[in-house]
């Protein structure tokens, strides 16, 4: 494995761990909502619980990024900005399609689309500076 790839993996390891915990909590809470009858307060608590690993994921992601050099930071900043804009445009598109009665997007679709767009734009920006 390349030295730089290793460095990336080490820097982002805590962020990956919290992302996995967060996703596991989202799936677990979805299962609980469908399988167990809970009070409103408990349902609210369970729905908000993934925010804790989500916040820690963000914290360690930013911490990892700050340890990178200026070109790598630029690549990530450009990727984040472009992903944000493309996702906003996509959200408007989903809205138009929904109003036209052609497609109804779920909340998860936006998140999944954003992750896919992020990966595509990141690879494009990495390639630009190779």
């Amino acid at each position: 494995m390349k030295q730089e790839t290793k460095r990336y993996l080490i820097a982002f390891r805590p962020a990956f761990v919290w992302a996995i915990i967060g996703l596991a909590l989202v799936f677990a809470s979805s299962w609980v909502f469908q399988s167990v009858v809970l009070s409103s307060a408990l349902r609210l608590l369970l729905a908000l619980l993934p925010l804790i690993p989500g916040g820690l994921f963000l914290f360690y992601l930013v911490k990892g990024l700050r340890g990178f050099d200026e070109l790598q930071q630029r690549i990530y900043t450009e990727t984040a900005t472009m992903t944000f804009i493309v996702t906003v445009l996509l959200t408007f598109l989903f809205g138009s399609l929904q109003r036209a009665g052609l497609y109804t997007a779920g909340w998860d679709d936006i998140g999944n689309a954003m992750m896919f767009i992020w990966i595509c734009i990141y690879l494009l920006n990495e390639w630009r500076y190779r």
Binding site: Q3, E4, R7, F68, D69, E70, L71, Q72, R74, R128, Y129, R130
Partner: peptide, 18 residues
């Protein structure tokens, strides 16, 4: 104290350093 990618990008003039 930068990545090899950064050195390469500067050399190939794809990136101007700070």
């Amino acid at each position: 104290e930068v990545s090899r990618q950064t050195v390469n990008a500067i050399e190939t003039q794809k990136y101007d350093p700070s």
